[in-house]
Design a protein around this nucleic acid. Sequence first.
DNA 1: TCAAAAGTGTTAAGTTTACACCCATGA
DNA 2: TCATGGGTGTAAACTTAACACTTTTGA
Lengths: 225, 225
Amino acid sequence: MNNYYSSNPRFYVGIDCIIFGFSDDELHLLLLKRNFEPARGEWSLMGGFVQEGESVDDAAKRVLAELTGLDHVYMEQVGAFGDVHRDPGGRVVSVAYYALVNVKEYDRELVQRHNAFWVNINELPPLIFDHQEMVSQARVLMKRKASTEPIGFNLLPKLFTLTQLQSLYEAIYGEPLDKRNFRKRIAEMNCIEKTDKIDKTGSKRGAALYCFNDNAYRKTQKFKL
Amino acid sequence: MNNYYSSNPRFYVGIDCIIFGFSDDELHLLLLKRNFEPARGEWSLMGGFVQEGESVDDAAKRVLAELTGLDHVYMEQVGAFGDVHRDPGGRVVSVAYYALVNVKEYDRELVQRHNAFWVNINELPPLIFDHQEMVSQARVLMKRKASTEPIGFNLLPKLFTLTQLQSLYEAIYGEPLDKRNFRKRIAEMNCIEKTDKIDKTGSKRGAALYCFNDNAYRKTQKFKL
DNA sequence: TCAAAAGTGTTAAGTTTACACCCATGA
DNA sequence: TCATGGGTGTAAACTTAACACTTTTGA
């Protein structure tokens, strides 16, 4: 190791996770009601710090896993947040990531231990520091990405009905979609496959269950919802 | 100051600038042929380090000004780059920003002193570290932004012809555009205003000079090229 | 038998693309 | 007078948006 850079200051590098989930036809965020300092008692994103020998991306995965127990989760970087006084507890440059998780699969005990809760994204409480801004940026980014790449499926169970898929996209876009136009688009992309299974929980008649076919997607690279 | 965070390591936080310019109908980047360590003799982006009491955004502005002498330049964050070994000179988490500058206006002496040169973006030499990846991400981001927000004008003089504007957008998109369709779009947005000045340098007949009208833009918020 | 969600095509409106000629001027 | 870039409109192709009824079945 050399010391070309040693005249410069060093900083804590934080991670903050915007964790999206989908339930009851609405997007939710997994938020912490902080029972630790600083800002005890207030709501915040799950966070942590980058460690020696750990990449920033890996730190984000670790922080997410610490809360949810989940691995191999879809994550995308939102950006670096570096205002001098963004964290009154000390100078921290934080890198925000959003994650898309299936709300059926996280580790409930870990979440409970962190005092974390799923909060409807349209009824968010005030958040500490610049976490509100991180959430806004993450929503914009996620919306754009979800419209052109098949990342939304990370928020659904492996098998889902077309009605569920539509209501997910309505939640992401924040507006109602036309059922026939939506299904027409689905039919045109051949990356969403009908299975022979039927979901009877949502209706008397029952709805066909579909799954996302990643191989078919990788062939066509076509996606637009 | 407290020490809630003091069990965590600290890191150098770097800045790297992807500096776009437009000349000879092509996009260029202002790159350094490094006459300093590490990676002396190789090509790199202009960089620097975040200092105590300085926000990351302010550091980016400062680093840009150190090279170009320019202030009030359009900049947008590309993201944080945090691989453990991205910089063989030491562990640095770097935040990349792109900047759009008018190639007529920078401080030539400063640029010369840094051994920096405008390089055609389609003929880039190999760059050190992960700078190539930063450039790719910046290009994608800039292209998307330029198509929906009037940021391209930062690359042009205050007065420009429609032919210049078209050739700028052709360079940004990397494909030719239809002259009549392009001008139709311009005419529909009322944020680009004809002046009574004529540019005679590009043709015998002379072309009308236009300017961007930010007030008109802010009223309509419409932009699409 | 009826309430509740599933499933299914067509048409009009709007947007995007393709395309060719005259104009003004300086050399 | 002619070579050079400046300036202008229309029609076809395509994409998007609007819209309503029949089916199935458990309660």
